[in-house]
Structure formats: structure tokens, C-alpha cells
Amino acid sequence: MQAGTLSTFLKRGAIWGFIVLELIFFSVAGEFLSLSDKAFMDAGNMLLLLKQTAPLGIIAMGMTIIMINGNIDLSVGATFALCAIVLLDSLTWPIFAGLGDGVIPVAWALALLTGIALGALNGLIVWKTGVDAFIVTLGSMLGYRGLVFMYNGEQPTSHLNWTLVDFAEAQWLGLHTATWFLLFVTVAIWFLMNRTVHGRNAYAIGDNRTAAVNAGIRVGPHMMINFMIIGFLAALSAVVFYSESGSVNPNDGELYELWVITAVVLGGTKLTGGSGSIISTFGGVLAIQLLRKGLAHIGTNTETVNLVIGLILIAVLFLDRQLNLKGKEELKV
């Protein structure tokens, strides 16, 4: 076994260990505390959990590649809401009235294109102005949210299309549509990051940007593509979620960026870039969703979830630091 492999294994495995711990804890604690008679690890419950993981999970996959690339995207929540509005509103546009249910793919395409365009705009600004992605997306978080509100004021935008609802509520091989989307996205992004030139270059850029530039890798286009991907995924998340719910409030998606970043960091992706794993991010979102559901299961107020997740995030950061301390003789700076 090579040096470093064990600690890498421990780190990669940590999130799954945590999930197992959660499952055991909530199953046991549920026996004593649960308000319902159902076991926590009930199959239906777990399937539902996967489905509920999907909206954040899909975005988290995008955030992982953005962060591996050495950037961050705070605008995903606003992008999510704006794409949801485009989806629901375009279903009712008169020009598509003649299409019948044929409007569905058109509306989906419009929403997804909106997401790609918003992401591309972020990416282009980061690339061409050289302003830090944190500031660029902080700005567009406000800006995109402003567009959401300008669209329909503080009113919700609603349209229920029953064909869509049926599609979204369908189960195939036991899994819900949303779950399939999440699984598909996870596999696709894993493939992108581990098997394609773009993915490997994205790792290289985040890991050692100078080396990447000196080797002739064009940093800008890679960053831009990744921002387009996260825009697309935020839109896809909205499409999956709102096809079923049929109503979007202008505040929807607020704080999503924070939840998603939390999940990605829990999954072990470094803020400084260059390191991170898609599968671990999947574990990260699963862990958060489990926590939410588990705490509800044992009768804790749902409010406690935020508290627990925040503390866990800080604890993970602390543990990571302790593990990486080099020893007593280290320079105290």
C-alpha cells in the first residue's frame, strides 16, 4: 500500500461511516423516541429520502466540479428559482397553446437553456474580468433573485400540468423519477470528472493553476464550461422539483447555495480546489437529508436540524485540521 492511501481511504470513507452511524443512531433512538410506529429504515421511508435528496443533490454535483476547479457559485439558489419560473410560466404561454402536452419538452428545454445561459454569464464574467468567483456569484445571486422578483412580484408563479405531475410521481424499479435523475446526474458527472479531458484538466487547474497554465491548459474555457454545467444542473433540479409541485415562490431556493456547499464540504471537497470526489458529495447530500429526516423521526423539532448541521460542518473542519497537523515543531504562523 502506498503512503497516503490509507489516510485518503479514511477521508473518502468517512462520510459513509457517518451515514452508517446516522442510520444506526436513528433506528435505535427511533425505537424509544419515535412518534410513529414505523421503523426508520423502512424501505418506503428510504425511497422517499432519496427522492427528497434529489433537488439539492443534483445542484451539489455541479458545486463539486466548480469547487474542484477552484471556484465557488453562490448564485445557484437564485438560478434554481428563475429556471423554475421559466418552466412553469412557459407552460402557459399562448404561442405554445397549440402543442398540447407537447409543450412539456419545450418548457423543459427553455428552463434548462435559461440555466445554462445564467451559468455562462457567471463564467464569462469570472473569465474575462478576472474578478473572484465568490464576488461575481455573490453579485449575480442578488441580480438573478432580482429578476425572479421582477417577473411576478411577490406572487407565486403556479401551473399544474397533470401529465408532468404523473411523470414526476412515477416510480420505476421502485425509485422515483427524481431519484433516477439524481443517480443519472451523479454517474454522468463522475464520468465527466474522471474520464474526460475536460474533467482531468479541471482537477489540474484547481490543484496547481500555474502548472496548468504553463502546460498550456486554457483555464478560462474550462471554468466557463463548469459554470454552464452548474447552471444546467440548477435548472435541472428546478425542472425535476417543480414539475411535481407546480408552484414557485419568489423566495424558493434561498440558502440553497449554503446547503449545497455544506454538503460538498462534508463530502470532503477542498475549498482551495484540486481535490474532491463526486461519490463523496453524493454521500454528503445523503448524510444531510438523513439527518433532517432522522431528527424528525425521533421527534426533534425540525428546527434543530440547522443547528446540528452547522455544528457538524465546523466539527468536520476542526477534525480535518487536527488530522493534518504536522507536529510540535511546526512554524507557529
Binding site: L258, N301, N306, G310, L313
Partner: peptide, 16 residues
């Protein structure tokens, strides 16, 4: 990350 975690934690604290 710390203040992101605290954002969530304090929010939870307030709700609790």
C-alpha cells in the same frame, strides 16, 4: 466555512 456553519447553527438556535 466556519461562518457558513454558524449561519446554519444560529438559525437553528433561533428557531429552537
Amino acid at each position: 466555512i466556519v461562518t457558513l456553519g454558524m449561519l446554519s447553527a444560529i438559525h437553528g438556535l433561533t428557531l429552537t
